[in-house]
Design a protein around this nucleic acid. Sequence first.
DNA 1: GTTCTATATATAGGATTATTATGTATAGGA
DNA 2: TCCTATACATAATAATCCTATATATAGAAC
Lengths: 110, 110
Amino acid sequence: MIAPGIKRGTAELAVLSVLEDGPLHGYEMARRIEEQTLGSLRFTLASLYPLLYRLEKRGWVRGAWETSGTGRRRRCYRLTTEGKKKIAPIRREWAELFRALKRLTKVSHA
Amino acid sequence: MIAPGIKRGTAELAVLSVLEDGPLHGYEMARRIEEQTLGSLRFTLASLYPLLYRLEKRGWVRGAWETSGTGRRRRCYRLTTEGKKKIAPIRREWAELFRALKRLTKVSHA
DNA sequence: GTTCTATATATAGGATTATTATGTATAGGA
DNA sequence: TCCTATACATAATAATCCTATATATAGAAC
């Protein structure tokens, strides 16, 4: 598991990434993030819900109540057109961060 | 430049990394981090000083006042033995985070 | 000699984001 | 009937970085 101080800021990219595969509700997002990162990245629902509200407020995702096959009420989120456009730039910023940290490591491996 | 929300958490690794090259004072750390990351990673001194106090409290670095050749008083920080041991595990966590985010991207590039 | 810029440290106040803890509620199996 | 998994929600707290502000000196420009 990755320390909270280090994974800070990844939740947004993680949520947007899993939503690229199609609409999902919160509980399922948490499950997929954990599954797809082989357990490295794990978020509690208490982290994800406030994040989803923020993303909805920004217009990047839109949530809609639906009733599942089992009769359970849940809130299904999908990426908006605007939200889709944000993913690539965010990924680029993460890539730049990785390069920056690699350079720091390289220079000071001394 | 990288958005503050994304670079959050990198300051600690950045500081420890530049200190691997030898003792430094705060102002010079900021300069080197910016230089070595080609401007991608930039921290204000107001971010670095509190961080240095935290690191000193944990026993990872030790600061000592010195008077530079120009007669300017400054606080020079060096890695402690304990601090040196922490760097590798932290880098491993960052590497794990990168792998996790790459997997998320790959799976959901759809 | 005074003003400007670079050097150098310090702290208060605020923003963001994740965490723990808690609460509600239902479906399905033991 | 009880337990577990599913599903959403919010309050209180913690951590980390930012902007703004303050202080002070060295050296160059004027």
